[in-house]
Amino acid sequence: MSLFQQYQAEFTGHIRNPKAVPPPKGVASRGMQVYAEIVFNNMEDTLAACFPVAKRILGVRRWTRLVRSFFAEHRCTSPLFRQIPEEFLRYLEQAPDAMAGLPPFLYSLAHYEWIELALTLSDAILPDNVQPDGDLLAGRPALAPALALLSYPYPVQQLSPRFKPTQPDAEPTHIVAFRRQDDEVKFIVLNPVSARLLGLLQTGTLTGQQVLEQIAAEMQHPDPQAVIQHGAELLEDLRRQGVVWGVLG
């Protein structure tokens, strides 16, 4: 490593962790401090904008400590500024030590908060051959292109400074998050059957009829026809809400 790169390593090492890593020798302390502050504040602002509920639940002190440890320990690999929250999520996932003493639901909550940003900015597009008014039973329903089918061990949509469960629920919380045709991102909490329905539809290979028949069989339902009839209404409702965008041609 050349001399100037050695200096850069010391300079950025100090910015990342000003308390533990000394600045390069001879650098003016005020200027160095400006960098340590603006780079961290920039990072913190971005994360606070994406994770407002997590910040509120943790409180400023614990939140700042967590962001500090992320900043010191994590190496961001994306050149895209908007992916800093994703880098933070990866850090939460991979750094169990950083999570010690933090609420057990933190990762689930952070993921739930991040998905809104991810879907807002997603560049996923619908295949060309989708018929918006197609028959959802006879055809293969097409889901919104920017969509995530989520299962969390905690009821993430209810978490707040007043509701901080210490144990996961017995049953996971299923949520579909999706961007509608008008580009608004919406969330719907699903029951297990609806979640299974959307999970099967996501494969893109089955017709609405086939999916509902499979669900009736899995439920060992005495009246499969009733499941299909009820399911057909559910599919139409999902189309009205913008989860289903039509039928694949």
């Binding site: 390593a9 990342r16 780079v39 990072m43 971005t46 190496r75 961001c76 994306s78």
Partner: peptide, 13 residues
């Protein structure tokens, strides 16, 4: 960036 991105403009020696 230096061993990962810092997302701010830093001075080159």
């Amino acid at each position: 960036s230096a061993g990962g991105y810092l997302y701010d403009l830093l001075p080159i020696p």
